[in-house]
Design a protein around this nucleic acid. Structure first.
Lengths: 337, 337
DNA sequence: GTGAAAGCGCTAACAG
DNA sequence: CTGTTAGCGCTTTCAC
């Protein structure tokens, strides 16, 4: 490892000067600068980020807390977050809480404010109290994807209008003529998708079809959950012609359940999901869904986090991500029965 | 932020003593310890990881370099790696290179040896020279999943026998009676899967069916690649009864291509992949594949990395992960034509 | 322009 | 058992 002072020594200057040329700060003579740069080059010097962070009184990383990076929704968010962070000279630490509040708390205790000065929180089943305690200790916390723009949370956040997302799904299904609809609410350890369902139901009411939902069930928020729940739903309510799943994963599972039962999607059954994960357009039939602006929300969250770190006061604590959008693919069709 | 010396002051001792009680080091009197702990509690003290790392002369994180965390293969690896790292008190930084050697180099230059003392490298299209330069600068580098156990690389690694993986696929297809086989080699920016194909071909030769491959093509290593390539292959070589894809993603794409053409899998066409990503068993039909020990390799890589950091010399530079295993699901069947 | 010095928060000898 | 003393590598005033 080469240190600043080694470079300084070789260049015949002091480490302060080397620091100055490296960070284009202060005035340095042209020849001195040249000598310094030559020494840097010759020694292969690289600044020690840990030391720099300590001296600057800031942490070099941002932390991303998710329940599990293996959940297909998060990698897209993480990718965008990491790229945004890197553009600002920060690195991204991923923290998998496994939906265990203790792990979440342990993470916050350890890295918030010391290794990471900013924490980006996704659904990770972390107690809001823990987050607030973390914020009180001086770390900056941002909720990466808050589901209720009309109901600001206690912490800074980037909000996505999931109520609208649900409504878009409802309007589309109604427009296609569906009047007997099943709803699969992804829940499980991640908590329920209440706002999405509310948006769906509200839109139905507005359209005068408040009675269109003939079957509703909670399922685990996964392909498996949708598969099992879907099989049960299709058996229990054979009259339904369309299903809205509050998440793509269960929607995909439902399509499998339909396939297993010989029910043709979309001819006999329309399926619409919500989120638009990668797997959605790769499925067969490709899943119609309401796309949520994952990457944008990630980038906005990082930006918000960094602004809050820089100027804790003068920043509005909530930003609204672009509106969700209906993405029509092949899993939905006009009611034909 | 509370610092050690604040705690010390409140407890009426010196910071060294506080440090000692916190890290169970040295001998501390019971009453002193109690007072210190009380102060820690009262002040809500949390050790500053950055400062600690600097003082200890080590970096607090491990870096995971991947081409893109959004590629479905990596999150599983990343999850296991992060958990292993955390058990050893380290945090995991994810570095997406986007297969750009410049980004890879920039990452290595910045964090290796300063923020991360260990670097875990997956296929990320990083020049081996850059990695070696990094190692020479003092950082520890481990290749997370080396494909050729019989050909140790220039850097420490965890090897997975992909030659065997390919062979398992070949044996199974032959056992099912297939004699006209297509091979889809995932390539694209990630580089080709040469070893997998070699294993497949070698096994075919061994079994006396060296001529079974009637069509071979390179495709982009993605669902899209498999979809496009698959359509082309099925059009060009309608006689094939089975396809081996060197990765699950193209295999999944191929199944879609077959579905689009009305070709029934597995009745008319058997498809076998390699890796066993999450999506494989969620597909319809569920994909038969050769499972690679992703999570184990991740855990082993982290262990190797940490041992190398602790004792650079005395550690064997290559470890072999558990052997790949055939996972029979629903996309393959006995040849029936 | 450049250097000297203090300090970020913590650890690690070594003294006492 | 506990305190003193040096740093870790870097940044940042403030003199010169």
């Amino acid at each position: 490892m080469t240190t600043l002072s080694q470079v300084a020594q070789r260049a015949g200057v002091t480490s302060a000067t080397v620091s100055n040329v490296l960070r284009q700060r202060g005035k340095v003579g042209a020849d001195t600068r040249a000598r310094v740069l030559a020494a840097v080059e010759a020694l292969g010097y690289r600044p020690h980020l840990t030391a720099r962070a300590l001296a600057e009184g800031r942490a070099p990383t941002l932390a991303l807390m998710v329940s599990s990076i293996a959940n297909p929704f998060y990698p897209e968010f993480a990718l965008a977050a990491e790229q945004a962070a890197r553009q600002h000279g920060r690195f991204l630490i991923v923290c998998n809480t496994n939906d265990d509040p203790d792990i979440g708390r342990a993470y916050l205790d350890q890295i918030a404010g010391t290794l990471s000065d900013g924490v980006l929180v996704m659904n990770a089943n972390i107690c809001i109290e823990d987050l607030q305690a973390t914020a009180r200790r001086g770390a900056t916390v941002v909720l990466g994807m808050w589901e209720k723009p009309h109901q600001p949370p206690a912490l800074p956040c980037v909000a996505v209008d999931f109520h609208l997302a649900g409504a878009l799904a409802a309007r589309y299904l109604i427009a296609l003529g569906h009047r007997k609809i099943g709803v699969m609410v992804g829940g499980g350890v991640c908590g329920v998708h209440a706002e999405r369902e509310r948006g769906f139901n509200d839109a139905l009411l507005e359209l005068g079809h408040g009675d269109a939902v003939v079957h509703r069930m909670m399922v685990h928020d996964s392909v498996e959950g949708g598969l099992q729940g879907g099989a049960a739903m299709l058996a229990a309510a054979p009259s339904i012609t369309a299903v809205f799943a509050t998440n793509d994963l269960p929607a995909l599972g439902l399509m499998h359940a339909a396939a297993d039962l010989g029910i043709k999607v979309p001819q006999q059954l329309s399926v619409i999901g919500l989120t638009d994960i990668q797997g959605a357009h790769q499925a067969r039939p490709a899943l119609t869904t309401v796309a949520v602006p994952t990457a944008q929300a990630a980038a906005m969250s990082v930006a918000l986090l960094l602004e809050l770190i820089a100027e804790p006061q003068s920043v509005a604590p909530m930003r609204i991500a672009p509106a969700p959008e209906l993405v029509v693919r092949a899993s939905t069709a006009r009611r034909s029965d």
